[in-house]
Amino acid sequence: MNKQSNTRDLVWNGSLSISVTTESSPLCYMTNIPRLSYIAFILDEVRKILCPNEKLDNCWLEFEGVPLKSHWPIGVLYDLYTATDPDAPRSPVLWKLVLHYDNFPASQLIPCNEPTTFRTLFFNALKESDYVRNKSASYILSLSNSATEELWTSIQKHDFEVYQRFIPRLRSAKYDQLPVRIYITPDTPVVQESVSCKETLGSMLHKTLPKLFPSQNIAVLAKAIVHGISIPLSTNMNLLNQELCYTDGFVHIVIHML
């Protein structure tokens, strides 16, 4: 219990320091954003400070020429686009992003200008994960309006006290299946799999990406990164589900090439 609590707390409280600049303004916006949170939650605030005359429709964030998807968790974006080795010595992190308000890359990003757009995306992902786990999205659908609002508010405000009440149900897997998303490179499509909770991470990756993981026990060509740390391939998938799951019910795994 103590171990679980500590790990969950560390996962929940993980955060990244980011600084956002824009080409036309010398001002710099800095904030700490939880790893489990989303760009969609801070984009409007950034816009109001850096370029208040521009519409939210046209605003998007970029890192080294790559548009950042608002509907992916911040931690996944950071692990994927910075491609840092978590086991190597690292310097302090201040993630520098650029805010743009023209030439919206419509082919790469989903506009999240409406308050309900991202919420819809999030709950769709939640239903999807619930279906994989329990063969039905009935739990999400059966939530009352007030409970739905509570869950959404806890996600927005990153409130663990409220969110933890939903954890037992959100992370249950009656049919022993766990939804996993695997990010290989920024240019590669996301691999989405349903895996058994009884498998190990290594066996799952060996089955899904046999060329990158020729061995089930030893990371030869690549390693798996979840929440900014490398996970041993011998780790049980059930542990990943209970401790390292994201708020949308998925386990997001970033592959780092060795």
Partner: peptide, 11 residues
């Protein structure tokens, strides 16, 4: 995770 936080929460 603690080691990660040392790096990522420096600022």
């Amino acid at each position: 995770l603690r080691s990660r936080d040392i790096v990522e929460k420096s600022y």
